[in-house]
Simulated assay, not measured.
Amino acid sequence: MNNEVMIVVNILCETQHYNTVLNAIYKCASESVLEDGCERYDVYPDINDSQKITLVEKWKSLGELDKHKRLPHYDELQSVLSDKVLSVKIETARLV
């Protein structure tokens, strides 16, 4: 059985905080791709709606994703997102 996990995160930012949020996401992404369990961490600013940012992540396992969520760069991103976004939708799927 394949343990790999795909994560798709859709973030809707408050307009005035868009650049701050995007920069924080890029910082987290640059550190996340260095983790052993991270196979992909892509950032896609939406070309039609300047408030939306989509993340596509691939992790070797749920355990590796859990480790990621305990690291300082993840916590820093969560701090930035906490009061600067309108919504965050996270979809998780196991690869088969």
Rank of each mutant, 00 (worst) to 15 (best):
E39R: 11
N23W: 06
N3L: 14
L71P: 02
Q51A: 13
S32W: 00
E57H: 10
G63A: 15
I53V: 15
V56Q: 09
L12Y: 13
V56S: 04
K52Y: 11
M1Q: 12
C38I: 01
D36L: 10
L22W: 06
H73W: 09
A29H: 02
L65A: 01
I7C: 10
I90N: 02
Y41G: 04
S82C: 06
E91C: 11
R94S: 05
T92F: 01
E91W: 02
K84Y: 07
L81Y: 08
L95C: 12
D46M: 02
V43F: 04
D75G: 09
T15Y: 09
T20Y: 01
E57P: 12
G63M: 06
E31M: 12
S87I: 02
L77R: 07
V33W: 00
L34N: 13
D75S: 14
I90C: 00
V85S: 05
Y74Q: 02
I53M: 09
V8E: 03
R40I: 00
I53K: 09
S30Y: 03
Y18Q: 14
K84D: 06
Y74W: 09
Y44E: 03
Y74L: 03
V80H: 08
V56P: 02
R70Q: 07
K84G: 05
L81H: 08
E31P: 04
V80L: 08
C13Q: 06
L12I: 15
D42V: 04
K52H: 14
S30P: 07
K52N: 15
A93T: 11
Q16G: 03
L62F: 12
K84R: 15
V56C: 11
H17R: 06
N2T: 13
N23M: 11
S61P: 14
L81I: 09
Y18C: 10
K27G: 03
D49H: 06
T92P: 00
H68V: 08
D66H: 07
R40E: 05
D42I: 04
E91N: 14
S50T: 09
V21D: 10
Y44L: 11
R70D: 05
L65E: 04
C28Y: 00
E91D: 11
T20V: 12
D46G: 01
W59E: 09
E31C: 12
E64S: 13
I7G: 09
R94Q: 07
S61R: 07
K27L: 12
N10I: 03
V33T: 08
Y26A: 02
L62S: 13
V80D: 08
K27C: 04
T92K: 15
P45V: 10
D83M: 06
V21G: 11
Y74D: 04
K69V: 12
D83F: 05
Y26N: 15
G63Y: 01
D42M: 02
C13A: 12
D49C: 06
M1H: 13
V56W: 05
K89P: 00
V8T: 15
L12M: 15
